[in-house]
Amino acid sequence: MWEKKPILFLLLATATILVGTIVTMVLPFAWVNTEHDRIETVTPYSALEQEGRDVYIREGCNNCHSQTIRPLVAEVLRYGEYSKSGEFVHDRPFLWGSKRTGPDLARIGGKYPDEWHYKHMDSPRAMVPKTNMPDYGWLTENSLDPDMIRRKMDVLDFPYTEDEIKALAGKNEMDAIVAYMQKLGTGIPWREAAATEIVGELENPFKGDAAAIAAGKAVYDANCAACHGDDLSGDIGPELTDMSAYDDAILYEIIYSGITDGGMPPFASLGSTKVWQLVNFLMYRE
């Protein structure tokens, strides 16, 4: 019977489609982004950050980078505290992504100093030789349009001050995207919570061992050279040629836990063996 009546057929098909739609797409509005999800410390984007977000969208960074951390052991270890619904309430559109050609960026904010981002965006391969991320140095040539950004803030209904808009005048798109990077994932104070407490006595297991020093050099080249220089002479981070002010245990702690407010990322995820190798490389190389 329905096989002979196209209009009836259309109505039946529509009704069939709507069942799952209503349950899994319409109803969730009652649960999501409600008071239940609200996180006090999560604030809207500033004018500069929002503009950076729009540059991120325009350049399609989401084609290579995701922005949600799943509650899985290795993932939390690699990227940080898993993502909460309340952290995204100001995101229009969402930028969770579906492919990690590059690392997740949900908690990139505060991981590196601004200077690192400027250098990395300008020329990713200068920092990370084998990366396939495109160069974005040309963003510095595009200055911002404060009037347009004010309009965006109005449409989004985000708070801003006239001074904040005025301050945009001399800035460019690179400043905006770096500001956006530094905002990501900082809505909750997760870094403090995640800082690993080192318990017990720290004993260097390889003291002066040549193999450990050689291994430490390789770990250094891959993870530290971009900031401290190939020859330890310093760049974004300080010179590391003279470690006489430290002992093994303190150095271990610096590398393991980082100096978060100083721009030195924690390297706990490397594991204690590699961190000890680094300590031996920095303290006891010839």
Binding site: V32, N33, H90, D91, P93, F94, V155
Partner: peptide, 24 residues
């Protein structure tokens, strides 16, 4: 979506809702 200019708009849904609508 809500337009801000001829070629820029913001999604009518935010965050997790936007994600759920989008993948539906």
């Amino acid at each position: 979506e809500v337009p801000v200019s001829l070629f820029k708009s913001y999604s009518a849904y935010a965050g997790t809702n936007d994600a759920n609508v989008h993948w539906w």
